[in-house]
Amino acid sequence: MVKYLIRRILVSIPTLIAISIVIFTILALAPGDPMGEFALNSGITAEVRENIRRSLGLDQPTHIRYIKWVTAFISGDMGYSFTSRLEVSSLIFQRLPVTLWIVGFAYLLGALLAVPLGVISALKRNSAFDMVLTTLVFFGFSLPTFFTSLLLIIIFSVQLKWLPFIYNDTLQLTDFNSFIELIKQSIMPIFVLGLWQTAVLMRFVRSEILENIHKDYVRTAYAKGLPNYIVIIRHVLRNALIPVVTLLALDIPSIFTGALVTEKVFRIPGIGALLIDSINSRDTPVVMSITFIYGILIVIFNLIADILYGLLDPRVSSTK
């Protein structure tokens, strides 16, 4: 297991280097000038703009800028935002709690619902419960989140006036009433993201349960006289969760980087909204930092998935 883990870590290092090169190169070659906003300001002369460009290191060759950026990033310095003039790390940490609250809770809700519903749906295949649940999952997976968000806003905010449709980021948790307001403004975005997450995960859990439930080792377990719930939990579910682990591992980074569309629809001041605003304003340091953090998280959680593979199925670590 230790050798297997070391091999996976060694593979992850060049992967991160390649990701950083791709991100930096794409943003460096992208059209648009980060100093474009200064060109519209008549009070800033061409000489001043050139001094600003030089102070930001934009006059240096691309490979030099890349080395400086990677070196600074490793030391914890993500640079300064071109638009807000604040440290990029400060901007990210300001938005992170909101993203963790909304996206994280929705992801947890989806994972907790998807596994038991997927198992029950597979065990009751072709029943009325299975058909109704599969239909709901189909709609939840097929409908884009922006459509579901707008539909909930029209029903619960515009028509019924039960819930606020704009997230109030100035709300302070000073008493119980403010906590209730926080819950009310979080219900719709959490439901939208949780519905989609449940639909995606449940489809995988159901299909994997159906694939494993008729295999020889399951029939052997039943022949030994083991109870049905023991066979499902200890044998079927353990093997069925192996491919589901990959999906879970790849989705977890989105908890830290936000839900781009949903955050913009509900005006949630999360990292996803920050990324979109930074792209629109050509705020390269913020875009590079968020995308590279996302890449790092994907590599880390893929590594965690590989470790879980070895724990769920020892054959994985022994054959690699």
Rank of each mutant, 00 (worst) to 15 (best):
L193F: 10
L237C: 03
V205I: 15
N228I: 13
S55L: 04
A249D: 03
A72W: 06
I233A: 08
K184A: 09
L260M: 12
V115Q: 07
T145L: 02
R49A: 07
V287T: 13
L274R: 07
I230C: 11
E50K: 14
F256E: 02
I23E: 03
I190A: 11
F141C: 03
S55H: 09
T174C: 00
G104Y: 01
R315W: 09
L123Y: 10
L275N: 11
Y80L: 12
V11D: 08
T62C: 10
R53A: 11
F165S: 15
S207L: 04
R95S: 10
A122H: 07
K68I: 09
R219T: 13
I252S: 06
S281K: 15
K184W: 05
N51W: 11
I19Q: 06
P34R: 04
V103T: 08
A305P: 15
G76Y: 06
S278W: 05
I92V: 06
I17R: 09
L109K: 05
V132T: 14
L260V: 12
A223E: 03
L123Q: 04
P285G: 06
G32D: 02
I279A: 11
F82C: 03
S207R: 03
D130V: 01
Y309Q: 07
D313S: 10
S178K: 01
L247W: 01
I268T: 05
T284K: 13
L5G: 11
L193I: 05
Y294V: 00
E87L: 05
Q172E: 04
I9W: 10
Q94F: 07
Q197T: 15
A28C: 05
S278Q: 07
P285R: 10
I13V: 15
I183E: 01
I307V: 13
V88G: 09
I300W: 02
Y107P: 04
Y229N: 15
L112V: 15
I44F: 14
K215F: 09
L108Y: 00
D251L: 09
D216H: 12
I300F: 13
A106N: 03
N280S: 12
A305Q: 11
I26N: 00
F176D: 00
S149C: 04
G270V: 01
F73W: 08
N239F: 10
Q185W: 02
A18V: 14
L171H: 10
F146A: 04
S75C: 07
F165C: 05
M78F: 11
A28E: 06
I154V: 13
P164Y: 00
I180T: 06
M35N: 13
N177K: 12
L152P: 00
T71L: 11
P227I: 04
L143G: 02
T170Y: 09
S317Q: 14
I17P: 08
I300E: 01
I307D: 02
L311H: 09
I120H: 05
F204Y: 14
G310H: 04
D216R: 13
P269H: 08
L96E: 05
A249L: 01
Q60N: 07
I154A: 10
Q60F: 01
M1A: 13
R234S: 12
Y167R: 08
T319A: 15
S84I: 03
S318V: 08
Y80N: 15
K161F: 03
F139P: 03
D277G: 06
E47Y: 10
F147S: 09
K215P: 04
V98Y: 11
N126S: 10
S254C: 02
F24H: 08
L312F: 15
R267W: 09
I180V: 12
